[in-house]
Design a protein around this nucleic acid. Sequence first.
DNA 1: GCCAACGTTGGC
DNA 2: GCCAACGTTGGC
Length: 153
Amino acid sequence: MKYWLVKSEPDVFSIDDLAKSKNQTTYWDGVRNYQARNYMRDEMKKGDKVIFYHSNTKPPAAVGICEIVKEGYPDFTAFDPDDKHYDPKSKKENPAWYMVDIKLIKKFPKAVTLDEIKQNPKLKNMKLVQRGNRLSVMPVTKEEYDEIVRMGS
DNA sequence: GCCAACGTTGGC
DNA sequence: GCCAACGTTGGC
C-alpha cells in the first residue's frame, strides 16, 4: 500500500465538501500537471491512503484522510468545452489527463497546520515543505503519513 | 496583493 | 533543442 497527499483550495473544494458528497466520494478532477497525472494514472491503487491538504488558505493544513476507491481513468472534464478544466489537447481516444476517485475516511479532530508540519523534525523531508514545491498530488512515506495522522488525532 | 518558484509555450 | 516570456501556484 502507498500513501499520498493531495492539495485542494478549500474555496474550490474543501474536506467538508467531500463529507457532503454522495457516499463521501468524489472524482479528483482538474489536475493538469504531468507528474501528478502520472501518479494518478500509474501508481495510485485502490485502498491507498491519502492525506487531504488545504492550500491557499489560512492556515494551510492537513485536514483529514481519504482512500483511493477507483484507480486512474480519463478525466472527462478535459473533454468538455464548457468545463473550467477543458483542454483541447486531451482526446477521448488518447486522453492527456487522468483522475482517481477518493472517499473520505475521516476529517481530523484537529487540523495539522503547515507550520506544525514544518516544526516536526520527522516531517522535514516531505515534498510538501521543500522549497518551491507546487505538486498537487505527491507521495508521502508511511512514517510521514502515520505522524500526520497522529498529530491530527 | 505580492512575488518567488516552477511548468509550459513558442519563436528561432 | 534552447531559452525568454508567460501563466500558475501557493505561502506570506
